[in-house]
């Protein structure tokens, strides 16, 4: 794979369950190496189906899926040997202890970092001798995270990784574990995370795609998104004057105050507002979650 080639390259992916239940339709996705890529969407948007296609747990019915430049179907083993996966519903063999589970999963790998295993077990305060059957949902997710990170893969696929984790562990996981994973080999370790808890990943996401009804609604770099999606708050001395607000995604009026959300076209709108000499005028970038909500609202309209 050349350095410019994306780690994940999905082109025109379509997958339909049973009769007519189209989960993904014509999806295009490119994830560059070393990036943390977010796949955002509501429940049933097609995020899990997309990730399963990357793992060859589902076979694309149309389009192509390439991971590390390899065909995810034909070169299944080669692809999987370079990635780690945390599923949305974590399940282990109940008769195995945590340690036995790690030993079992390590048996499939060429490389397994024992130091990381010990360090994360201690950080999550997990007892390695406990049976996986008696672990809570959150603890099972922690075990799955450790198992995904210990082989030090080039690509980490996380499907709703923080669901079931308590706030402290969730923060620990996002800030420390994911951060440490990427810092281990900067510029080469890639993360593809599917979630609807967008706020949690706000600082980590480099680029994202918002999905709805199996289609891509919006794909942007996080910084570009924050530049484009702006919230403008204006307070006028008198009543709100007549303004051309067609460029605004959302308009909210409260007495002499006006709150606008814009997707691009912010400077022109600001210039128009300033002509009316407002009492105060502030602009701020939208959070990724607000962008997500607004993008889907526009989609719904």
């Amino acid at each position: 794979m050349s350095s410019s080639e994306p780690v994940v390259n999905v082109e025109n992916l379509t997958y339909t369950y049973g009769r007519g239940a189209e989960a993904v339709h014509g999806l295009n996705l490119k994830v560059q190496p070393g990036r943390c890529y977010g796949l955002f969407g509501r429940n049933g948007a097609g995020k899990t189906t997309t990730i399963k296609c990357l793992l060859n747990l589902l076979r694309p019915q149309k389009g192509s899926v390439r991971v590390f430049g390899l065909d995810a179907v034909k070169d299944e083993t080669a692809v999987k040997s370079r990635l780690g996966y945390v599923p949305d519903q974590v399940a282990f063999y109940p008769w195995m202890s945590v340690q036995e589970t790690f030993d079992y999963l390590a048996s499939f790998r060429d490389h397994w970092n024992k130091e990381i295993e010990r360090g994360l077990l201690s950080r999550f305060q997990l007892d390695a001798s406990r049976k996986t059957a008696v672990l809570s949902k959150g603890q099972r997710t922690q075990v799955a995270l450790i198992a995904a990170i210990c082989p030090e893969p080039d690509l980490l696929l996380l499907d709703e990784p923080t669901s079931g984790l308590d706030p402290i562990v969730r923060r620990e996981f996002i800030e420390t574990v994911i951060g440490a994973y990427q810092d281990g080999n900067p510029g080469n370790r890639t993360i593809l995370v599917s979630t609807h808890l967008i706020t949690e990943f706000e600082g980590l996401i480099d680029e994202f795609t918002i999905m709805d009804g199996g289609r891509s609604v919006l794909t942007l770099e996080a910084d570009a998104a924050r530049d484009r999606y702006q919230k403008i708050r204006v307070r006028f001395t008198d009543a709100i004057p007549e303004l051309n607000l067609e460029a605004a995604l959302r308009v909210q009026r409260r007495g002499r105050e006006l709150e606008l959300v814009v997707n691009g076209g912010g400077p022109e709108l600001l210039a128009r507002i300033q002509q009316h000499d407002p009492e105060s005028l502030t602009t701020e970038a939208l959070t990724l979650e607000e962008i997500f909500v607004n993008a889907l609202k526009v989609q719904a309209v």
């Binding site: 399963k52 793992l55 747990l57 083993t77 999987k80 996966y85 599923p87 499939f108």
Partner: peptide, 8 residues
């Protein structure tokens, strides 16, 4: 899914 996601 756990088994089939392994690199084997």
């Amino acid at each position: 899914p756990l088994l089939l996601a392994q690199p084997m």
